[in-house]
């Protein structure tokens, strides 16, 4: 038997930090996201003006010392609104992604492992929801429930969890016939133990990638619904709602739409870079994924 040294093999398995650093795009994406997270955490304490304070005598001002990015059509500080709006947008996004994962993983695990009639019922529900374009369905649900923050989140979670359940079920279906799962069953593991000890770790990295890529689309849906008036209600600052506010001044003061639009672009780009980078990084160590 040939001796295998731990050190010799370790170089094939670089630790996660090394891997992160070696991927420039992943690093850039992470940096971009961290910058926005910092602004959303610290921003509300450092903003120069009250984001809700209307001052009709100073509407549509150019950037100045008092207003770093100028003011909007109601004389509110654009910079302050962007910084405080970051918290709303990112907070809702995080909550939505979290709920989607919490619903999608158990449904996928149980559906894939139990099989049979339960699987058939759950997957027909998933098929039904996937059949609609997700944005149209989200608009329909949000419109039906009425404009509010909770309904906004509910509608996005409803259209998003199905893809997670699908992905998880697919992985479980291929993993559950593998010999390490069979060996665990022969060794007396209960179904629950097989699910959380052997199958759950296998699905975490693909779900992480899916979630990172989805952050961008969720932000876009939130902004779009707010833009349509179905999401965050005025006067609360939110990027999509700010886009909507600036619409009527697009020809004369395009910066009212440019700033929130750029903020959305920045975060969506960051999340897509992270998602793509993570997928490549996982693919390198586990080519089957």
């Amino acid at each position: 038997m040939k001796p295998v040294t731990a050190e010799g093999k370790m170089s094939m398995f670089p630790n996660p930090v090394q891997k992160w650093v070696r991927k420039p795009l992943l690093l850039i994406g992470t940096g971009m996201l961290i910058s926005v997270l910092l602004i959303s955490l610290v921003g509300p304490f450092l903003v120069p003006n009250d984001p809700l304070a209307v001052n009709m005598s100073e509407r549509l001002q150019p950037p100045s010392e008092k207003y770093p990015l100028g003011t909007d059509h109601m004389g509110r500080c654009l910079f302050s609104r962007l910084a405080v709006g970051a918290q709303t947008t990112l907070g809702i996004t995080a909550l939505v992604i979290f709920s989607v994962i919490v619903i999608g993983i158990p449904v996928g695990l149980i559906s894939g492992y139990a099989g049979g009639r339960l699987d058939a019922v759950l997957m027909r529900i998933v098929d039904g929801l996937i059949a609609f374009p997700e944005f149209v369905l989200a608009i329909a649900v949000a419109g039906f429930l009425g404009p509010s923050l909770i309904n906004l989140m509910l509608s996005i979670v409803l259209v998003k969890w199905v893809r997670y359940a699908r992905v998880v079920r697919g992985i479980v279906l291929s993993e559950r016939e593998k010999e390490y799962v069979l060996a665990a069953r022969v060794g007396g593991c209960s179904s629950w133990k097989i699910l959380y000890r052997h199958l759950l770790p296998q699905i975490l990295s693909p779900v992480l990638v899916l979630a990172a890529l989805d952050v961008g689309t969720v932000i876009l849906i939130i902004s779009s619904l707010s833009y349509l008036g179905l999401g965050i209600q005025p006067p609360n600052p939110e990027w999509g709602a700010m886009l909507n506010d600036g619409r009527s001044y697009f020809q004369t003061f395009p910066e009212l739409m440019f700033y929130p639009g750029s903020a959305i672009l920045w975060v969506v780009l960051a999340c897509n870079l992270i998602g793509d980078g993570l997928r490549d990084a996982i693919h390198e160590t586990d080519p089957t994924f």
């Binding site: 010999e179 390490y180 060996a183 060794g187 000890r197």
Partner: peptide
């Protein structure tokens, strides 16, 4: 069944597949 299972154990063909790669 669980009680009977402890008397019958198995060695599979491919040890790469029969061990959980993460444990």
């Amino acid at each position: 069944l669980k009680n009977a299972r402890k008397h019958v154990q198995v060695i599979f063909q491919d040890p790469t597949a029969s061990l959980n790669p993460r444990l």
